[in-house]
Amino acid sequence: MDVKAPKALLKAQKLANLLDTAVKLPIIPVRVGLDSLVGIIPGAGDALMLLVSLRIVWLGKSLGMPKPLLAQMVKNAAIDFGLGFIPVVGDLVDIFYKANQKNVRIMERWWIGENKANVDAATRQALNDWNEQSKDS
Rank of each mutant, 00 (worst) to 15 (best):
A126E: 15
A78S: 12
N131Y: 10
M107T: 08
V119S: 02
W130V: 11
A71R: 10
L48P: 00
V3Y: 03
D35K: 00
W111A: 06
N115D: 09
V89R: 09
L25D: 07
K116C: 02
L54Q: 08
A44M: 10
A12C: 08
R124S: 15
D20V: 01
V88K: 06
V74E: 14
W110F: 12
D136Q: 15
K61E: 13
Q125W: 09
S62G: 07
D2S: 13
N76D: 14
K14F: 03
I56G: 04
K14T: 10
P6E: 08
D20Y: 01
L69P: 02
I41N: 03
D129Q: 14
K98D: 15
L9M: 07
L34P: 00
L59F: 03
A99G: 04
L9D: 05
L51R: 08
V23D: 03
V93Y: 13
A126G: 10
G64F: 04
K67Q: 14
K135L: 13
F81V: 06
V52K: 01
T21K: 11
I40W: 08
P42K: 03
P66T: 12
L37H: 00
L15N: 01
A126H: 09
V104G: 07
W110D: 12
M107G: 04
L15S: 01
V93E: 08
K102Q: 13
V89S: 14
P66L: 06
N17V: 08
V74I: 07
I112H: 10
L50G: 01
L59I: 05
N17K: 14
D120T: 14
V88Y: 08
A122M: 11
V38H: 00
E114K: 15
A22W: 00
W130Y: 12
A8W: 02
L51V: 13
M73Y: 03
L127C: 05
I28Y: 09
G60C: 06
D35F: 00
I112W: 08
A117D: 12
V52A: 08
A47E: 08
M49G: 02
K7R: 12
R31I: 04
A22T: 01
A16S: 09
E132S: 10
M1P: 11
G39K: 06
F85D: 15
D129N: 15
I27H: 10
K102M: 06
G45Y: 01
E108G: 07
V119A: 11
Y97C: 03
F96I: 12
R124A: 12
D2F: 05
D2W: 04
A99S: 10
S62P: 03
L37Q: 00
I40C: 07
A8N: 14
G60L: 05
G113R: 03
Q133V: 07
R109G: 13
E132T: 09
A22G: 02
T21E: 11
W58G: 14
